[in-house]
């Protein structure tokens, strides 16, 4: 072979490109078209220029929803990633316990978003819900319907319950792929438990952790169904995240132009943050 690459191989990704074009690029182009126009339905559009972008960028409502979303993503990443790593480290690597643990971990992931929301909505009620009633019996003034802090606590607990398993399973996959020879070498050297984690397990988990962080960030930043079912964005607007606000605007108020402009700004923020996460993590990996 004269050269180490062959550009004809790009044709192999053509079917996937066609699929992405139909499922993502064309809808995205349509959203861009909507974002500079106004419509009253019946497929009739009127040029609005950059009015909707100006409206979104100066909107207090958008800024508050964005800050809520960033805070939510930061909190759940700070909880789910260390917790997921901790659980994965303590799961059995051999024996019958492996299957039991894997099934238990996979269970929350199999439950649809709206069902998770309904489970936690009932679970948190202080008249019939186990959590709400237990807290009330202990004298804790807990009411996610009227107290913003309780609503946040419930939504965060629900997300941690639903998605920590994903981090666990990814980290576990990384951990079981480490050859025994590494552990044997560490044992011969008299390495501590922390040293084994820091110099063997963590570096080997880095790639799967990067995927876990990216997936959880993107997913939490786009969260909609669970908080919508549990709190409906309330009390007040305290759990109104960007996606909830976007749906209210697009389908509730039928403001397609402002909703399109908002979704594009939302998309760009996700794109930027995901790129930063990806670049920082892969670059750190490459430097090692």
């Amino acid at each position: 072979m004269d050269k180490p690459w062959n550009n004809k191989a790009w044709w192999l990704v053509a079917p996937m490109l066609a699929l992405v074009a139909f499922s993502a690029v064309i809808p995205l182009m349509t959203v861009v078209n909507y974002s500079v126009q106004d419509t009253f339905g019946n497929n009739q559009f009127f040029w609005a220029g950059l009015e909707w972008y100006e409206q979104v960028l100066s909107s207090e409502r958008f800024r508050e929803a964005l800050l809520r979303n960033l805070l939510f993503s930061a909190i759940i990443l700070a909880i789910e990633v260390p917790l997921g790593v901790f659980i994965a480290l303590n799961m059995p690597k051999k024996g019958p316990g492996v299957s039991v643990c894997l099934v238990l971990m996979a269970l929350p992931l199999l439950i649809p978003w709206n069902v998770v929301g309904t489970i936690w909505q009932v679970f948190g009620r202080n008249d019939i819900g186990l959590l709400g009633w237990s807290l009330k019996s202990l004298g804790v003034d807990y009411n996610y319907v009227s107290d913003p802090l309780d609503a946040w606590g419930t939504v965060i607990a629900m997300d941690v319950w639903h998605w920590t398993s994903l981090v666990v399973l990814l980290c576990y996959a990384g951990l079981v792929s480490i050859p025994d020879a590494y552990y044997q070498a560490a044992k011969i050297d008299g390495a501590s438990r922390w040293a084994v984690f820091r110099h063997i397990q963590l570096p080997k988990m880095k790639r799967v952790l990067m995927i876990a962080v990216l997936l959880r960030f993107m997913d939490s930043f786009m969260i909609y169904t669970e908080p919508f079912v549990v709190t409906g964005g309330g009390p007040g607007n305290s759990t109104t995240f960007l996606s909830i606000d976007l749906v209210k605007m697009a389908t509730g108020q039928f403001d397609l132009g402002p909703a399109a402009a908002m979704s594009l700004v939302y998309f760009l923020i996700i794109l930027l943050l995901s790129w930063v996460f990806y670049t920082v993590m892969t670059n750190h990996d490459a430097q090692r």
Partner: peptide, 14 residues
């Protein structure tokens, strides 16, 4: 493609 609501500006952009 009228459902895509094309305008000259967005067509130029893309």
């Amino acid at each position: 493609f009228s459902w895509m609501a094309w305008t000259p500006a967005t067509a130029a952009f893309f």
